[in-house]
Design a protein around this nucleic acid. Structure first.
Lengths: 226, 226
DNA sequence: TGTACATCAGTGAACGCGCGTTCACTGATGTAC
DNA sequence: TGTACATCAGTGAACGCGCGTTCACTGATGTAC
């Protein structure tokens, strides 16, 4: 747990740079979370990991929950950025949905404990829960609605209700990410296949794409229709 | 938290009935979980709720994790029974899928903390994680595969791969149940509508059913196809 | 240019709390003789 | 029928631990004069 600790190596920040410790505390909390989950977080464990004494945290945060809210902001920013990058890189709206979904699930698998923290409702401030900063409700969910609207506009989706269909997509992706991130033993099918089933089925994609071909051309064999 | 406690009112069990306390401990743990989530569970909090001294638990369980595993068994039995009842009552396979899904989500909403415990992988024994007792992998997941196979056999589903499609359905239902159970504020669409989107989309139902009509006849307007 | 002082960025010791766990024990009740 | 005893179903006190939080403090560094 203490492998990445900077305990004992830390130097006091120079005069006027006291704010730097705030960021160091958030980073230390992220390391504690990655190593042992949110239940390993305590004021003292974060202080140990940051290489400072416990009372020093009070100079920057009111309590450990304030630290966790700052952590949550950092995690939200990270996942939104990762998805945003993928979405911006793809002009094809169907590919955008698939790759965005893949980025979401990939984040959950690489940072399972951050993903869990992101969905721990107890931690959220009302603002984080209600507005744009909300993990799914906010930017990632909005990205999903926007991408689905683009699919509809391009004639690639049969959805007539992009908001309600996006709720279903959100549920599917969160459930899949959540199941994968807890590391349950299960004969999981190929991930790209499962993501295609979820996105094609819930976004009502009429015009699948074969991602295994570099040309990314539409193919007719992606999903059989009756 | 202590409202339903039987502290101070409890009588020692009669000679030869010491086993009864085991069940009382599990029930007390369920009350603690329902009131405050799994993080409120401790050996002492469960003992308080059961109206016994803390060391008494050691006569029946090796440690608090053993109590939680017994709790998990009870929760799995409950949810499996609730779903099984609904499934057995419906001869129509499409209705079975919808009502089974509704029962699952309803359980998550009525017992959000039990639902969370059920997906807390840390608690599972290897047996619970791998075999029939597993929360979704086991009986509920098998019920889903069986129901989907019935839909296919009845010509109501276009699925050609019931196992992989069931994984997608499992993801969708778990995600939806999970999102609802954490109580996030969100303009949720009508629940039956969302469940229809998830099941019809992922089970590839070609022949929707209108649940609002008591006759449960198939209707053509459930989902537009391009 | 020197020096007193204020400020900054923290520290160390201590507090009371709930926790898991141990250990010797208690008191009611069934049973052997 | 009486009584000694074994057993059962627990209890009460104590331990060491990590926790959140407080409080007086320290020592380096910038600044006023």
């Amino acid at each position: 747990v203490n492998i990445m600790s900077n305990a004992r190596t830390r130097q006091r920040n120079p005069r006027g740079s006291g704010q730097l410790l705030r960021a160091e505390i958030v980073e230390a909390a992220l390391r504690v979370i990655d190593a042992g989950g949110v239940e390993a977080v305590s004021l003292r464990s974060v202080a140990r990991e940051a290489g400072i004494s416990a009372p020093s945290i009070y100079d920057h945060f009111a309590d450990i929950d304030a630290v966790l809210r700052a952590v949550l902001d950092a995690v939200l920013a990270q996942v939104t950025e990762e998805i945003g990058k993928v979405v911006a890189a793809n002009p094809d709206p169907v590919v955008t949905m698939l790759e965005g979904a893949s980025a979401w699930v990939s984040f959950a698998e690489r940072y399972p404990h951050r993903y869990a923290v992101m969905h721990n409702y107890q931690l959220l401030t009302t603002e984080q829960a209600d507005h744009g900063a909300g993990p799914d409700q906010g930017r990632p969910f909005d990205i999903c609605v926007a991408a689905l609207n683009e699919c509809i506009a391009a004639g690639r989706s049969a959805s007539t209700d992009p908001f309600n269909d996006s709720v279903a997509i959100w549920a599917g992706l969160h459930g899949y990410a959540s199941l994968l991130s807890v590391g349950r033993r299960f004969p999981w099918p190929d991930r790209a296949d499962t993501l295609r089933r979820i996105i094609y089925g819930l976004a009502k994609i009429t015009d699948p794409v074969d991602l295994s071909r570099t040309g990314r051309r539409a193919v007719g064999s992606g999903r059989r229709r009756s």
